[in-house]
């Protein structure tokens, strides 16, 4: 996967598969410490210690439709290439947190890529889900909570054509703002 936002999408999709109804994506870009930190947390069914260890094995998957699960091993490899690492914390019945850390300036670090596209792919999931997203670039943050948006929308779904265009634009503008203020 050429962009970190594709790994993020894949990790968020894992959360959906685990039955999560609330996702958190927190991205922190910190030039001073030359660190990029990506955290995905969910309230899905969680995993025991044995399974938490095994999800980093490419020949392990919870799926029955195919026999390999490459998502997290690929994400871990991407972090390790850049003097970083991937940690997973999980508790059955509570949820899972995946944290990937990268040396921000590392020459092998893939770009974050198109985060609005990633977020829209998750928000348009058939499974109803709420997403909290916070993205910080050198102290400047953009924040989005779809639970608040859903409350405002009432019975109009987020997948409604007008709502999804509005939301996609709002995310793009928000990210452009923090990039601008931070540089």
């Amino acid at each position: 996967m050429r962009e970190l936002s594709l790994h993020i999408l894949d990790t968020l999709e894992n959360s959906l598969e685990a039955g999560a109804t609330r996702l958190e994506l927190v991205i922190d870009e910190d030039s001073k410490h030359d660190l990029l930190r990506i955290r995905v947390s969910d309230n899905g069914r969680g995993m025991d210690t044995e399974m938490t260890r095994r999800v980093l094995d490419p020949f392990f998957t919870t799926r029955t439709t195919r026999h390999v699960g490459l998502g997290l091993p690929l994400f871990a490899a991407a972090a390790e290439r850049c003097n970083g690492r991937l940690h997973i914390q999980s508790q059955p019945g509570v949820g899972t947190t995946v944290i990937a850390e990268f040396q921000h300036s590392h020459m092998d670090r893939s770009p974050l890529g198109d985060l609005p596209k990633t977020l829209m792919a998750v928000l348009l999931s058939e499974r109803p889900v709420d997403l909290y997203y916070r993205h910080t670039v050198n102290g400047e943050s953009f924040e989005l909570d779809t639970a608040a948006i859903r409350r405002e929308l009432g019975d109009v779904p987020i997948s409604h054509p007008r709502i999804r265009s509005w939301l996609s634009e709002a995310i793009k503008e928000g990210l452009a703002d923090i990039q601008e203020s931070a540089t």
């Binding site: 594709l6 999709e13 348009l124």
Partner: peptide, 19 residues
Amino acid sequence: GMGTCGIAAGARETMHAIL
């Protein structure tokens, strides 16, 4: 479809093209 297989094959871009 937006599994690992779909994402790796470019499903996010396909979805965006559809929108």
